[in-house]
Design a protein around this nucleic acid. Structure first.
Lengths: 258, 258
DNA sequence: CGTCTCAAAAATCATACTATAAACTTGACC
DNA sequence: GGTCAAGTTTATAGTATGATTTTTGAGACG
């Protein structure tokens, strides 16, 4: 089962308990994801002593290799190591999403992620309805129960919600789909952390959506599962955008209030 | 534009002109992807002198970091570096696909990839129909022309086909979707390399499918674009499975003919 | 216009030392 | 005598550093 904590961990804050490698990797990655280092910019191939942390060359080089594996940078002999164009970034990678969601996000980014969810999750629900084993159905049911039997917007609810979506993706029985789990979980988690107002009315709507999808999967009604999942995701997008705009306005007021 | 060559490059064959790093990475990765190294198995953290290539520790360690970035392995102090469970692998990563498709493939793997295409590409076509700029439309048209004006099953056709799908994904205007390009391109390329019989009848059907989708995008008819793209992918799956089974039978006969 | 040389930067090599956490040992306590 | 908690060991990943080799763009040169 996926742990929420792994996704929650705020990267970038030079936590002493984290390995040097991770600190360096996070630092460079975030400065790329945030646009601080633009595409084509040179990435220092030796540790920069003036940047707080001063790792050895080994650590620095391994960090660069790690980032190049994610498509963020590319090394070319004689010309230097440079930031790759955005198109080369693997936005669906869990690490990249972590780094991306750690910084300031623009609305279109969120919309795009939800759009992808809209393509994936209804189809996954359709497959899950047909292919799920009894054991998988039971697990999904348990996750749903977890959402019903806890106070709204608590950690237990969030975990249950993540499990719910994660299990449906698993039940679809397509490993390629399972790889998209990270996108969905990250998006979900990020949007839930945003829900500031914690409106009980919205929550009960979301809960009803989840119940409907579950029932369709239970009854092995693929089309219905897909349709209900579509509205579930759409409702989620709506709530998230509302919260996002509220948060953005609050932020704007803060910045202009100087 | 995506180059086919990058995907074609057969990994694993200790090509002397390739960097040591790449040789080591490919070697380990393939032995994982092929199932030679099972999940949970220990990966040597020091270069193995008996394995043909004998890199230094740095190179070996950087290779491991690269693989850990792909989710293939995980290092834990005091317990060793081990192969991660399949569920942690990022199957949608271009490198992973390259390694996976380099070995023996089972039918279900191909089916799963096409299933994913079936979720993504029709939706992408729908978006592209609505969002495409005139310039993007022109590019897609050019790719289509490239498919029409060359001899079937030549490199030029393959390149044009790849461009066609790639450009539609781009025209959908969702960077998250663009990241799935590698899956689609890899799947496509792999299936085209499989078309042994090169049936002209099948090709003209495929061409007609491509034309229909293009026209729908031109007319900004999203639903039609999606529907036509669905049949395009389905036809592709059908052809690929046919070729695959032929190839598999040929292979079986070879192995039993001893 | 080709080719040659030079040097910048990545890639590779070799060999240290340090930190961590899992497993083992010990010993007090019930 | 058995159980659990606190310390100790130690294998393994992580970090550090200095040197050498290979690649390749760019400018010099014929």
């Amino acid at each position: 089962m996926l742990k929420a904590s792994a996704h929650f961990a705020a990267p970038g804050q030079a936590n002493q308990s984290e390995s040097l490698f991770k600190q360096v990797t996070d630092k460079i990655a975030i400065s790329i994801l945030s646009g601080d280092l633009e595409a084509g910019a040179l990435v220092p191939t030796e540790p920069d002593p003036g940047s707080g942390i001063a790792p050895s060359r080994s650590v620095h080089r391994e960090a660069l290799k790690y980032l190049s594996a994610k498509g963020l940078i590319e090394a070319k002999q004689r010309s230097g190591t440079r930031v790759s164009p955005r198109s080369a970034w693997n936005l669906l990678d869990p690490d990249i999403l972590r780094w991306a969601l750690a910084g300031r996000i623009d609305e279109s980014f969120v919309k795009n992620l939800f759009e992808l969810r809209l393509f994936i999750e209804p189809n996954a629900a359709r497959l899950a309805a047909v292919r799920r084993t009894p054991a998988q159905l039971l697990q999904i049911r348990r996750a749903l129960t977890g959402m019903e039997s806890n106070k709204p917007y608590t950690d237990a609810i969030i975990q249950a919600d993540l499990d719910y979506h994660s299990l449906i993706l698993d039940a679809a029985g397509n490993p390629a789909l399972t790889c998209l789990k990270s996108v969905i979980i990250s998006t979900l988690l990020w949007s839930m952390r945003l829900q500031i107002d914690k409106d009980p009315a919205l929550f009960s709507i979301a809960l009803a959506d989840h119940r409907r999808v579950y029932r369709a999967i239970e009854e092995q009604n693929g089309d219905q599962a897909a349709a209900f999942m579509t509205s579930l995701v759409n409702d989620g997008l709506h709530d998230t955008l509302t919260s996002f705009r509220t948060a953005a306005i609050a932020l704007t007021q803060c910045t202009t209030d100087k």
